[in-house]
């Protein structure tokens, strides 16, 4: 079985985001970029299934501008067998990403597609679900536990009410939550080895992805700020303030 992992490049989670003064976007010049943390978890999950002998090949795919090759090398160094770089100068929305991933799925015929549950830039949490819908296959989102056997995946999902377990027939789409695993660190020899691994490049336009349903981002603004409040010196003062506000 092959596993396809969607591997997005995002602004590193430690970067303090600045909205451009003209509201046209967020400042991206010289900002550190990293793999989406949830996608690292997705890749780790795929690598573990390969190590268990359940999968033979792990393919990472990204939709990104031409300069994203080092990003893919990073995923290859972590252990993916090969990479597919769908080149798009402009960022794509979840629906377009799902349509593009479907094209890759039709070509590669993976038994599992694993994605992060959300990307930490647009925080949409949509692409996996949309891919599953377009592919007409099961989805198991927000996975915190994953077992694959006999053509089925048993997935524990982190839902608001607690932990839900579902069983899905393969092929299926899984999206990963934080606690599915802890991604491995990349070792120097793996970085050297990754240089020899294949990266297939394909233009987004050449995939023949359907258009329509696009949403446009018209303005960016900084969030409303909460102002710093008062400091109290002891519990008595705190309780008095809470009582004043009718909260205690």
């Amino acid at each position: 079985m092959k596993i396809l992992v969607a591997y997005k490049r995002v602004v590193d989670f430690n970067v303090r985001i600045q909205v451009k003064p003209d509201g046209s976007g967020v400042a991206s010049e010289g900002v550190k970029l990293s793999p989406n943390p949830f996608d690292d978890i997705a890749l780790e999950a795929a690598l573990r299934l390969r190590e268990q002998g359940i999968a033979e090949e792990v393919i990472i795919a990204t939709i990104a501008p031409a300069d994203a090759q080092p990003h893919l090398r990073n995923g290859l160094a972590m252990g993916a067998n090969r990479a597919i770089h769908v080149v798009s100068a402009e960022p794509v929305q979840p629906l377009a990403a799902a349509r593009a991933l479907l094209k890759l799925v039709e070509k590669e015929q993976p038994g599992l597609v694993i994605l992060g549950k959300q990307a930490i830039d647009d925080d949409c949490s949509q692409t996996g679900q949309m891919l599953a819908a377009l592919w007409d296959r099961p989805q198991a989102t927000f996975a915190s536990k994953l077992e694959v056997a006999d053509g089925k995946a048993t997935v524990t999902r982190e839902v608001d009410a607690g932990l839900e377990t579902i069983e899905v027939d393969l092929p299926a789409v899984i999206t990963t939550d934080l606690r599915l695993n802890e991604p491995r660190f990349i070792k120097l020899p793996d970085i050297m080895k990754a240089k020899a691994k294949p990266i297939e490049t394909v233009e987004l336009a050449s995939l023949g992805v359907a258009h329509g349903g696009e949403i446009s981002n018209t303005n960016y603004a900084p969030p409303a700020k909460r102002s710093r409040g008062v400091m109290v010196k002891d519990v008595a003062e705190l309780v008095a303030l809470l009582q004043q506000k009718g909260l205690a």
Partner: peptide, 30 residues
């Protein structure tokens, strides 16, 4: 169709605001 996640406010039948980057920016979407 596409989907709008996390609608914070409605400014018109097709215009909404939503948080991105962990709420560090608010984007208006149409």
């Amino acid at each position: 169709v596409g989907q709008v996640s996390d609608i914070m406010s409605v400014t018109g039948p097709h215009t909404f605001t939503r948080p991105i980057y962990a709420g560090n920016a608010i984007v208006t979407v149409e």
